[in-house]
Amino acid sequence: MPLDWAYVAVFALVGAVMAVLPLGVVWLLAPRSQYAHKRIPYESGIVPFGEAWSQFHVRYYLFGLAFLLFDIEVIYIYPWAVVLRELGGFALVEMAVFLGVLGVALAYAWKKGALEWA
């Protein structure tokens, strides 16, 4: 078991090193001429006004919140999916209740307009 996760860790490290390598090659090969105007963020040709890090619409948060709730519920279903065969009908009824509550939550969010892109 720990060996499995050692594989994941080594893959992540080796992957990061190999992904940074070409950036090193760019650093060695590519020409460099930095002047202030070159680094202006692109805004279709005009001089950008204000910061990009300003307020943005709340709807992104609504979808983020709804996702977070459902994603956590999904995690609970994984162990159930594996052992359903042994537990049989009772577990199925329990999961029907769980998914029913989840369905009511979805219907509520829908009714409240949290799923509208307005």
Partner: peptide
């Protein structure tokens, strides 16, 4: 690989 790298 030969292109300049720019950070805004």
């Amino acid at each position: 690989l030969q292109k300049e790298s720019i950070v805004p």
